[in-house]
């Protein structure tokens, strides 16, 4: 890696699905570069390939061709197990539909990433409690997700994304399921994290939301459009 400041670098990434005649090329050679501390929005209409891009960035999927460097490590060809470890240690996910485990309490949901750590780190409970405090949910630790409002659930999800102290926070339409007001809370939270120096990549199709980021990458039909 030439630049140590780079958190995320995609080089000529393509992604194809299907075989033979049914083969569809979803990503057609993308170069994306995100440096440490950036707040980047990825925009594009549905079907543009932004979800596929997110899956690759989130280490949930491999690119068909091209290279992906996360925090200086080539993760493009790693095994399923290694990718799991990387997700566990370096990436914090915030999803549109929150994706909390419904049987677990708020506190336990935040602790989930640590369940898969070996050896089991100490002080997890205290750390998670502090994180929930910082998103204003210190009084809801024993609640189940179903007992919370949408905004509260997304704040739990953000606390969870921060739990493993990730190098990259990946937000997939974090405000998509929220009304304007609570969406605004969540955006402010993300901006706060950015202010703390965290790297955030956010996917959205809402131009107003995208405007909150310091850079916007447009994706159109599997290619990068003009940067805003």
């Amino acid at each position: 890696m030439s630049e140590t400041e780079s958190v995320l670098e995609l080089r000529a990434v393509t992604k194809c699905f299907g075989e033979g005649d049914a083969r569809i090329e979803v990503l057609k050679g993308l170069d994306v570069h995100v440096t440490r501390g950036e707040f980047v929005a990825i925009m594009g209409p549905s079907g543009s390939g932004k979800s596929t891009l997110l899956n690759i960035i989130g280490c949930l999927d491999h690119p068909t061709t091209g290279a992906y460097f996360l925090d200086g490590e080539d993760v493009g060809k790693l095994s399923d197990n290694r990718l799991s470890t990387i997700r566990n240690e370096r990436i914090g996910f915030v999803f549109q539909s929150f994706n909390l485990v419904s049987q677990l309490t708020v506190l336990e949901n935040v602790e989930v990433p640590f369940v898969y750590r070996r050896p089991h780190p100490s002080g997890v409970r205290e750390r998670c409690r502090a994180l929930l405090d910082s998103v204003g949910l210190g009084h809801r630790l024993k609640h189940l997700p179903s007992q919370l409002s949408g905004g509260e659930r997304q704040r739990v999800a953000i606390a969870r994304a921060l739990a493993n102290d990730p190098v990259l926070i990946l937000a997939d339409e974090p405000t998509g399921n929220l009304d304007t007001e609570t969406g605004e809370d969540v955006l402010r939270l993300l901006e706060g994290l950015h202010a703390e120096g965290r790297t955030i990549v956010m996917i959205t199709h809402d131009a107003d939301v995208a405007a909150r980021a310091n850079r916007c990458i447009h994706i159109q039909d599997g290619r990068i459009g003009e940067a805003a």
Partner: peptide
């Protein structure tokens, strides 16, 4: 299935 997906995204390996 959803829960399994969440756990996988948060770093659970297959064996977990």
């Amino acid at each position: 299935t959803r829960e399994i997906g969440i756990r996988r995204a948060l770093g659970a390996k297959r064996r977990h």
